[in-house]
Design a protein around this nucleic acid. Sequence first.
DNA 1: CCTAGTTACGTACACCGTACGTAGTGCGCT
DNA 2: AGCGCACTACGTACGGTGTACGTAACTAGG
Lengths: 237, 237
Amino acid sequence: MAGKAAEPGVIWARPERTGRGPRPAYTRADIAAAAVRIADAEGLDAVSMRRVAGELGCGTMSLYNYVPRKEDLYELMVDAVSAEHELWGPAGDWRADMRRVAQQTRALMHRHPWLTRLMSPVYGFSPNALRYLEHCLTCLDPLQAPYGMKMQLVGMLNGCVTSYVATELAGAERTRSLPWSQEQENAVRIAYFGSQVATGAYPRLAAAFTEDPGPIDLEGAFELMLNRMLDAFEPRD
Amino acid sequence: MAGKAAEPGVIWARPERTGRGPRPAYTRADIAAAAVRIADAEGLDAVSMRRVAGELGCGTMSLYNYVPRKEDLYELMVDAVSAEHELWGPAGDWRADMRRVAQQTRALMHRHPWLTRLMSPVYGFSPNALRYLEHCLTCLDPLQAPYGMKMQLVGMLNGCVTSYVATELAGAERTRSLPWSQEQENAVRIAYFGSQVATGAYPRLAAAFTEDPGPIDLEGAFELMLNRMLDAFEPRD
DNA sequence: CCTAGTTACGTACACCGTACGTAGTGCGCT
DNA sequence: AGCGCACTACGTACGGTGTACGTAACTAGG
């Protein structure tokens, strides 16, 4: 008799170890690390229960003792990499601090390209997510504003960074499971785009396409977007 | 002999009908509509090749004559609902026009809650996406700025709207495939959140949680965020 | 007319998440 | 001390997925 009926529950609310029974062979950290290792090396789609169990060296179904649903495995992964966030003692310049936070988030997502796909608002309650949130609010202490607005700032910042990095990575993570290269895919897409623009139906798009882009500077563009966004929260008189 | 080797290709670049052979029984629009119908009614996870084929009334593998990979089916779906974007003749107030664009995007995503999950930068080249982009650029004609910046504005706007709506919908789409209700799930998560905050480790989070939120006005909050964002692109002197 | 390229679709394969049953293990309670 | 229960471990099995491939019917171009 084992069949525990499926029930709603956050994985963080279950204790990792209860008194009874043999001691678990793996910790949650072990499992998360294994899953992250696979996702980093072979892409998110390579992360399956069987694969993770294999990486750990245990039977597939044993994993379910630790992780009730695959969804929870994802949650573990997001929390695990969230621990990479550096939490410093803010110096008093909230704009500079938030810029640094955003830069780190971006770097994190570059290190773990699958993160943008898993970034869901529902995962916002994991231990490391809470720590991260508290840190952001600490950075925002000098900003004279209600917490509601600060939360909005953090949410908007995260949203924008996520979507920005998702655009940056675009096919990179996507084409990992495909049999052809990202360059090939891009070439085909751009060719189609060019053919459409050439019809003359999209004059402004055409102009945008042929406009001299100036020196391409991804870092600079990101910094610029950040500044714009933070400007929006500067208290007005 | 049928096995066409997998090759990179945008679905929009393939002609819908070539001269030879029997005339196809369905149009791309038919297929997209069927998939959208299923996703709207039963959630994105219910959209499988078999299910769509069933909805159309044809064999599963026949679908692959129209749609080389499932990924392309997704692309069809996004393009199909993108057609719902109303494209009006801009009156000359770019801020007002962009606000309207954003409002419509939000409404669209509420009508099709699966959209936030499929919103990928790679789908930005579909016919209706191009039309939409051109429309945005037209709205931005009065804004004195290089196209590069305008593209950035549109991208940032879309990113923010997407992440905002994703937060709004949070569990709604997610819990469709789960055996318990969203309320149950939320209750459990909030309970855990409360227990963590009660430890005292997150003083600012605690304060934010207990702060009087004032009258809750989702529409207003969205409008506010929009204005903040547009402010950021107002030309400075 | 012929034939090459297309549509249609059944079968089959590898893989997925996971329900369930069974066996072994060690803590907590009586 | 020892019973019993909660836990770990894991094999098997089921219903689902995307899709490769083979075959038969069909139709427009040469």
